[in-house]
Structures are given as C-alpha cells and as structure tokens.
Write a protein that binds this DNA or RNA. Structure first.
Lengths: 352, 352
DNA sequence: AACGATACCGTAAACGATTTCGGAATGTTT
DNA sequence: AAACATTCCGAAATCGTTTACGGTATCGTT
C-alpha cells in the first residue's frame, strides 16, 4: 500500500495536544486559542497535512460527492451538461463521480449500485434507451438521497426533473419547414423508448396535423445509433424507393448532417430540393455548408440547473426542511440557417 | 441527514452473530459454514443491505476511485479519452472522479488537492495551458499514489505518460500540403505552453525546412481559446494585410473549420486558392464542405491505455512490486480529404 | 485419556476525523 | 470569599468495515 499519510494524530502527538484540538484548530473553531491555532497550522503546513475526506465522510455521514449517470459522454450535448454540473459542483465544494451507462441497462444498474455504495450525497441521472424499470433508483429514494433527472427522465418516479421542451422545439422546427414550403416532411426519429424522442415525434406529428398535412408512416424512421451514417443511409433508402420528401426533420444534428451529406452525394440540392432541420444545435452546425437549421437546447444551463436543484435538496435534507419536487422545462430556440431556407430557390422534384 | 442505512451490525444483531462473521459470510470466506452464509445472505437481501464503501475504504486504505483531471470536457478529443478511461475503470471495478480545470491553473491545483483529499487510488492528468509548475502533483508522488499523464504531459515529472506523436503528425500534414503545391503555409498554433502545441509547431517548422521553405514568423499565430472564431479572425487578418498563404495548418479542427468558413466568406476558394489541414480528425470533419484533411489521433485508445497503465501501477503497488515509468507514444494518421487536394485546380492568387 | 486437527465464530483493535460532554484554570462579579 | 462566567482543551464515543488473533467445540487418532 501507499506510504502512510500525515494524520491529525501525528500533529497532535508532536504538539502534545489531542486530536480533537488539532481538528478544531484546523477548522478555526472559536474555542481554541490563537496561539494553539498558529502552532497547529504551522506544523500542518510543514508536514503537508491533507485531511482524509474518507474518514471525515464516514464520521459525518456525507461524502461531498455527487454521482452522475449519463448514457454517453462523447456527445456535445451531454458533455455540455456535465460541464454545467461540474461548475456548480466545484463552486459548492462537491466532487463529481461520473458514470457512463453506454445505453446499457445492466451498466446503468451497476453504476447506480456502485454510486450508492460510494454513498454519494446526491445523484443526477439521464436515462439510457433501454431503461424501462427503475428499481435501481429506489434505494436512493428510500434512503432519502436526493435524485434529480435531466433530459431523459423517469416520469414514473417522483423526483425533480430538468428537461427541455422537446415537443415545442420539434413543433417549431417542423412548422418552420412547412412555412418554407415543404409539403412533405420525413422524420428521422430517435429510439422511441426515450422520453425525448417520443416528445419530438409528437411535436412533429402535431405540427403536420396543425398545418393539415397528413402523416405518412413510412417517413418516420427511428434511428438506432443516432449517427451520421444513419442519416446518410436513410436518405439513400428514400432515394432508392424514389420517394424523397421535401423536408427532413432529424432527431439530432449528427443525423441531419449525415442526411445532408447523403443528399449531396446523391445529387440533391440542399435546401432547394430537400430542406433539412436538426436538433441540438451543435457548435459545428453553424459553419457547415449549408449551415444547418437546428433547435438549440440550453445544455449547459440544464447541467447547472439540475446540479443547483440537487445541491439545494441536499442542503434542505441537512436542515431537515421539506423537499418538494420541481419539474423545470427549459425553452428551446430555433436557429434558422441555410439548410431550411427553402423558398429562395425552390426546385421541383420529379413526382415519385 | 439521510435515513440510517442498513449496516453489518444490523444483520449481526438480528442473527445473533458478530459483525465479523457477517462480513466474512458476505465475502464468502471459507471458514464460515454454509448454513450461516445462507442465513446472512438471505437477511442481507431482505434488508437490502448495501456495503458502505466509504467505511471499507477507510479500513482498507483504498478508495477504488481514480481521479481524472482534464482541461475541458466539451471537446471531442477529451471526451473520447474519458470514455476510454471509464471503460477500463468500469472493468476493473474502479469509480471515476472527474475534474475539469477549465484551463485554469488555480482550478487545477484545487482539483488536485480535492482528489488527494478523497484519497484516490490513482490519478490521470492532462495539463492545462497555464500550468508551469507541478507542486500540486508532488503530494501524489510522495505518498506513492500512481500518477499517469496523457496528451498534455509534464516532462519534468518522472511518471508514466501516454502521448501522441504530435511532431510527426504535424510534419506529415505540412509535408502533405507542400506536396500538394503549397509554397507558403501558415500555422495557427496552440498556446505554446502546451507540450502538444510546441511539438506540432516544431513539426511544422521542420517540415518547411525539410522542403526548403523558409519560415515566416508572421505566419505563425498562436490561438488563445482554440475556437472557430479564432480561425476565422486569423484569415481575416491575413486578408486585410493582403498576405494570404497558400496553405494553412491549424492546431485543431475547430480552428481549421473556422478558417475555412472565414475564407469562404472572404471569397476564397478552398482548396484551390488556400488549402487547409487540421488536427484531431473530429467526427464532423469528414462531412463538412469541403471535407477537412486532418491528423487523426487515437483518443479512445489513449484513454484506455492510460487507464490500464494506471491500474497496473496501482496493482503493482499493492503487490509491492517495482513500478517503472512507461512513456508510450501513439501514432497519428493523416486523413487526406478535399480541403487539401490542391493540385486538381490550382488558382493563382494575386501577388501580395 | 490425552492430544492434535479442523471447523466455525467472536473480540477487539484498527482506519482517521468529528463531536458531545465535560473538566480545569482563570477571570469577574457580588 | 463565594459564586459564576469564560476560555481553552481532552476523553471518549462514533461512523461502518475489515482483520489479526484467539477461543471453543467437535471429531478422530493413538
């Protein structure tokens, strides 16, 4: 094992005082004389004493750690959320234990158990696609450990949530495509077990209905991996079927960008033949060609907000105050760019 | 505070045995009778007992946590590295405590101290730009806690490192631009305190020298934030000075993409008037227009490798074996795409 | 009957910090 | 001088698990 590290007892012994006094001196308690404080501080500094927060955690029954479970970290949206979480955690003097479920239910369960075993003071979760049951989160609720969901949430559980208005965002994006002249719009959807995917799909459907456009089931294709490749593959499929819509609304920007790429390679003009809109507004989406119309989600704010709510609940728990669950819905913003500016130079497609 | 959670003592009392026996039964020690094990397991299950790894950590003097410090998480390269780290950690039954220094030296120091206080069993670090001194990492070395650097490393410290061959990658990229016909090449460099930035700069310089092209200092501009905007701003600066090079080698893809965007807006043809190459090979780089030539770094492998080395060192420490520092250099791969395919339709620029 | 081997389990001391309770010493007030 | 307040500090319990050490009971062996 490692070399023994400096402890309170080491300092206490050298100064011929008790560990209690050392502990209090270091924490600047009022009932320790300035002289003693000075001596303790000096020696602690000299010996390079570092408090052992594991020991403190055991005694105080708090770890100063918050757990985070997300489906995937290599993802602009989630990494932004995490950044937001980490900033708030840092300011509140909390550490972040990060787990990636990799969209696997088993991993999510294992991670939840591991975080519980680590006695995190609170937990932030965005669910994976496979998750349909929530027993692995019950232990937190039963033990009274605050739990906040964000983005992909568990509606069945009574917890705080921070989500974006996926429905409204999708509705706006599709309405925009329609107002630009698209009379037929396909949707490259997400895996429909995800709450976000379902809400976007509903927004898509309702926008069509609202504008009197009938839904065609074959134009709703759910992605599995949500990749550039899928976007490309789907437009190829349409092309082969000789059934290309005038607009495409994709579950996220990667799929939209893949679609644009596929369309270009097939010889279609974007947006004059097929307009495209995405979701998430990746940094990159504004500089690609054509720049991509997309629904911007406040990912960083989602992270800070979720973390703030969690820390608040942790604090209230300490103070034995009542916790009431909050559900916060953040507004999206439609960023209109070249990929959907349809009317400028509309080119008729051959009728299928 | 939270509700009391089930402990070994609870189980022991109910079964009228000692906590020691319960502990051993749960860990399947051979000197506990099957009957007792059965009863303990059954009750533990019924009460939904969860081991408190904080207590275990204190007693065993190991936390089963590895710390990770990176400059920035909203970044494809780093998030991929983290993904690699987390996979290895997961398989080795370690938890990951993640800190983001935000390129701030003070935050890096605070994070290092916090991770030390949490008694992580090992630490993985990629340094921030501002870091010039390394005292905050000495405590780990002095306490014998394994420390592995990756990407942005501290050469002054005697630790294992996993890096990519930035020099060679840059050399290849610049040589490629030259072979495509660029007789003048600018470099949008990174902050030169970073080891990676310096190596890429050296690769750039040596490639020029190797091909008999003289270096022009005004064509080496160090970025500060490494953003799309900087790439754009720099080409604007060249344009205003009426001094546009035939090729641009950017420290990373975001800067390259920003440069391409800026060039387009200024009316330049890419690559026929100005060729561009980036570094990192972001996912997005292959689908933008023109697709971006870039040096691909094995980020995921870097993460898995660094984590594996760290876990090995932790294991060796336990077994009291000798640890010898390894320095592993991963090869880059030049992905040649449209943005640098110069010769096809070379257009002369007006002489400055 | 005496001894050793084996199987099974308990005692108690760690791990390092925190905190409750209280004690001693000094000063202050009546 | 007695009573009280204040200042400063220590003893010891505590958090929950692990583990070195030892103890008892049972059985087989000679």
């Amino acid at each position: 094992m490692h070399k023994r590290q400096v402890t309170l007892a080491d300092i206490a012994k050298k100064l011929n005082i008790s560990t209690a006094t050392v502990s209090r001196a270091l924490k600047n308690y009022p009932d320790i004389s300035d002289e003693t404080k000075r001596r303790v501080l000096a020696l602690a500094n000299e010996l390079n004493y570092r408090p052992n927060s594991i020991a403190a955690g055991l005694r105080k029954r708090e770890s100063k750690i918050i757990g985070v479970i997300i489906p995937e970290i290599v993802n602009h949206f989630f990494s932004s959320v995490i950044k937001g979480i980490m900033e708030v955690a840092y300011d509140g003097d909390y550490r972040v234990m990060l787990c990636q479920s990799d969209e696997s239910f088993d991993k999510e369960v294992t991670d939840a158990n591991a975080l519980f075993a680590s006695r995190v003071d609170g937990l932030l979760v965005s669910l994976g696609h496979e998750t349909k049951t929530y027993e692995h989160f019950l232990q937190f609720q039963e033990s009274g450990i605050p739990l906040v969901f964000f983005d992909k949430v568990a509606d069945q559980l009574k917890t705080s949530q921070v989500i974006v208005d996926d429905y409204e965002g999708a509705f706006q994006a599709v309405s925009h495509l329609i107002s630009e002249g698209c009379s037929s719009i396909a949707h490259f959807a997400g895996p429909l077990v995800a709450s976000t995917s379902r809400k976007r799909l509903n927004g898509y459907k309702d926008a069509l209905a609202h504008h009197g456009i009938s839904l065609r089931e074959e134009w709703v294709i759910p992605c599995e991996d949500i990749t550039l490749e899928e976007g490309s593959a789907f437009v190829n499929r349409f092309h082969k079927a000789n059934n290309m819509p005038e607009g495409i609304f994709a579950i996220t920007d990667s799929v939209a960008i893949g679609a644009i790429d596929g369309l270009k390679k097939l010889g279609y003009q974007v947006p004059s033949q097929v307009a495209v809109a995405g979701f998430s507004d990746w940094k990159i989406s504004s500089v690609i060609n054509p720049s991509l119309t997309s629904v911007s989600q406040p990912s960083f704010e989602m992270g800070t907000l979720a973390a703030k709510i969690l820390l608040e609940e942790i604090q209230k728990l300490k103070d034995e105050e009542e916790i009431e669950e909050q559900v916060i819905t953040l507004k999206t913003q439609l960023k209109i760019r070249e990929s959907s500016l349809f009317t400028t130079s509309r080119v008729e497609l051959p009728t299928p």
